[in-house]
């Protein structure tokens, strides 16, 4: 059966890279003796994949992984069994059984919500953020391995807000209250804005890129270490690519 598991990554686990996190989860699954399905072939591997890699240093309460198992039992117990094998800074939060024909979440992911936090000892003229977002286009230089090109990222910023309530009011699909990260995990952080950004393999905007563009627009120096990025939720788009986007959290059935 195909499972989609929502998880959080906080605290010092933010220093663990995406690849190392995958290895960590693989080992935890083995320790918990979960009946994971394996691929065929000479060196079989667990049928396990992650939705969208989180940047080193970022935290999250809305990441997903896909896991194929032979059986699960009671969902609560199932999650608890794996959570026991991991440190408290990685938590499996919920699990949903997906239809067999669902695509891997890696292919489904279309957007993610983020809370951008300011670290103690840093400052920024965040009151100008609405004005910045009011622009028709926001052109940035995007570097990939070989090329560097100019891209307008404004269309890839689907929505934004200055506080949790304001941000939530815009989203009909975000039914659960947003949980400001600093209250739960971190000290010395002030949330400054909320963003829903395009995420996934076809088009991807990292919150850092938005903040860098904002700083540039403000004419102040961009200090990457000033911001703590926290991912809140990850979505699929069920609109089929036409008309208004229809974002659904990955834990829901994501078959259009």
């Amino acid at each position: 059966m195909k499972l989609r598991i929502k998880f959080s990554k906080t605290g010092t686990m933010k220093f663990i890279s995406h690849l190392d996190l995958m290895r960590y989860v693989q080992k935890a699954l083995r320790r918990a003796e979960i009946p994971v399905a394996y691929s065929q072939g000479f060196s079989p591997h667990q049928l396990l994949s992650f939705a969208a890699p989180l940047g080193l240093g970022d935290t999250s309460e809305g990441d997903y992984l896909d896991l194929t198992v032979h059986s699960m039992g009671e969902p609560e117990e199932f999650l608890e069994k794996i959570n026991r094998e991991m440190n408290e800074e990685i938590r499996l939060l919920s699990v949903s059984v997906q239809e067999d024909k669902t695509k891997p979440s890696m292919a489904l992911v279309a957007a993610a919500d983020y809370c951008v936090n300011l670290r103690e000892g840093h400052g920024i003229a965040i009151e100008s953020f609405p004005e910045f977002m009011g622009q028709k286009e926001i052109v940035v230089r995007k570097k990939s391995k070989r090329t560097e090109q100019e891209v307008d990222i404004r269309p890839m910023i689907y929505s934004w807000g200055m506080d949790a309530d304001g941000f939530r009011r815009q989203q009909e699909e975000a039914e659960e209250p947003l949980c400001p990260v600093q209250k739960v995990y971190e000290e010395g952080l002030t949330p400054i804005c909320y963003l829903r950004l395009s995420c996934g393999s076809s088009s991807n905007v990292k919150p850092d890129l938005v903040m860098e563009a904002f700083c540039k627009w403000l004419g102040t120096e961009y200090e990457p270490l000033a911001f703590q990025i926290h991912r809140l939720e990850t979505y699929a788009d069920l609109s089929g690519g036409e008309g208004k986007k229809k974002f659904v959290p990955l834990k829901d059935q994501c078959v259009p």
Partner: peptide, 14 residues
């Protein structure tokens, strides 16, 4: 966040 492989210095491994 600025050194290579910060996990070298974290401890708290399994």
């Amino acid at each position: 966040l600025t050194v290579e492989k910060p996990a070298r210095y974290l401890g708290n491994e399994t």
